[in-house]
Amino acid sequence: MNIFRLAGDMTHLLSILVLLLKIYATKSCSGISRKTQDLYAMVFVARYLDLFTDFISVYNSIMKVVFIASSVAIVWCMRYHPMVRRSYDRELDTFRHYFLVGASFALALILHEKFTVQEIFWAFSIYLEAVAILPQLVMLQRSGNVDNLTGQYVFFLGAYRAFYILNWIYRYLTEARFSRWIACISGVVQTALYADFFYYYFIR
């Protein structure tokens, strides 16, 4: 664990918790893409299938449970909370996100480290995470305005991506075995999409 990864994990956690708490406190999810939230919940569930098979650290296990629980809670609120669901901007959230799921899964079937259920779902989660922000990006461009909640959420997510890239550079320089190009390329694509989002956010 280096400082960049810890900072990345904490900003990632903050992005999700701030979103969940604000949605719950204000009873509104206006401006938030439910499709992006669906994708993130799928990302965490698919990636953390190793929760019961591979123990890495107490920190890792707790964070995995928190990420799954909080992302599922956001989706639950947006779908089923009687007041929150009324504030959902359905007509602006039009991205066909199931294409992303299908394409990511197809890519995972082709590009993976081993042909096992866990490895394929792990690769799927990496590819899907890289593009999961797209429905939110499209929604932002359609609505044309960034409110505080969306802005903070994307700011923390962008910070998480930036710290993780620094973490990878650090690990690349300090660890002997570092050759997982699947995650690296996907991570760079994901960060580039956030850079686009930031650009749009700042010119507003």
């Binding site: 990632h12 964070m63 995995k64 990420f67 792990w122 990878w168 660890e175 075995r177 570092f178």
Partner: peptide, 10 residues
């Protein structure tokens, strides 16, 4: 020791 990048990350 787990140093298998990036499976030891979140």
């Amino acid at each position: 020791k787990h140093s298998s990048f990036p499976k030891d990350e979140l």
